[in-house]
Design a protein around this nucleic acid. Structure first.
Length: 271
DNA sequence: AAAGCAGACAACCGCCTAGAG
DNA sequence: ACTCTAGGCGGTTGTCTGCTT
């Protein structure tokens, strides 16, 4: 038995949206708000799939979207957060107000990938290209889905605060990169200093605050490890959006340019 | 001026998860 | 405990646009 289609495909428009469709969707959401995407097209008089409406709204019609070129600062932030989270576009987008996950994903694939390659850096591992083939799994990409879906894994994260970069998540002695500990150490020793700056000590654990989907970061210093929620939708103006504030941890000395670090009074609130 | 090509990005597809029943 | 559904996400595709030949 196959998967049931998300909508009646025979009577839905596909392809580019017309101005009239945009207007209908915008008007409807202004009056009724977001949500119930499945029934929205019919209610709004649109011959579109609910998913398509949601995507159009989120990626194009939603207010406060920032259009236009990415700044150098945004570039750097994307690269650094990507080095921590991997292809978690929605999480990366949560750090760039006004940018969408789709926009960042496209920008990554068309600009940043090339930029990194031209610098001799592997876009997936964030390591020098000549190391990329032997060191593919040693970056700090975190599989949040597997953590949340696997209670025993979640327990491990909670109990032991496993360091994502330094130790494999699976039990046993197999290294994720297929190298021995000594070989991995040798690879680490070869990494140029500027690369190592990106290798923040990142540990994660299930949120001690008991909020759903609040994964935490642990930032180790010489004396202690500080754990903070990675995202808390209360920190943002729009509920449901995830927030990760890493600006200090990513090396920014001030939070002046991080809108998520400032409250409505312009005061620093989370760094 | 026209054809071919590459880049950019909007939109779609299919999978996954959470929550309701 | 199980099934079903809606929403969300990441990967991929399609189309448009601008540049080069």
């Amino acid at each position: 038995m196959g998967r049931s289609p998300c909508c009646e495909k025979a009577h839905t428009n596909k392809g580019a949206w017309t101005k009239e469709e945009d207007q209908r969707l915008t008007d409807y959401i202004r009056i009724h708000g977001e949500g119930c995407w499945r029934s929205l097209p019919k209610a709004a008089g649109l011959l579109r799939c609910g998913k398509s409406c949601r995507l159009r709204w989120i990626n194009y019609l939603r207010p406060n979207l920032k259009r236009g070129n990415f700044t150098e600062q945004e570039d750097d932030l994307i690269i650094q957060v990507h080095s921590l989270l991997g292809n978690k576009w929605s999480l990366i987008a949560a750090r760039l107000p006004g940018r969408t996950d789709n926009e960042i994903k496209n920008y990554w694939n068309t600009h940043i990938k090339r930029k990194l390659l031209s610098r001799g850096i592997d876009p997936q591992t964030h390591r020098p290209l000549n190391q990329a083939t032997t060191n593919k799994n040693t970056h700090t990409e975190l599989d949040f889905r597997s953590v949340s879906a696997n209670p025993s894994l979640a327990f491990k994260f909670n109990e032991f605060q496993i360091k994502a970069k330094a130790e494999p998540v699976e039990e046993g002695n197999s290294s994720s990169s297929g190298m021995t500990t000594d070989e991995e150490q040798q690879q680490q020793d070869k990494i140029p200093s500027d690369e190592q700056e990106l290798d923040l000590e990142l540990s994660i654990g299930v949120s001690p605050f008991g909020r759903k989907n609040n994964y935490t970061t642990g930032v180790s210093t010489a004396n202690s490890t500080e754990y903070k929620p990675l995202f808390d939708d209360r920190d943002l103006g729009f509920p449901g959006q995830a927030s990760i504030c890493l600006c200090r941890r990513l090396g920014l000395q001030t939070s002046e340019n991080c809108s998520n670090c400032r409250n409505s009074n312009g005061l620093n609130r989370c760094c």
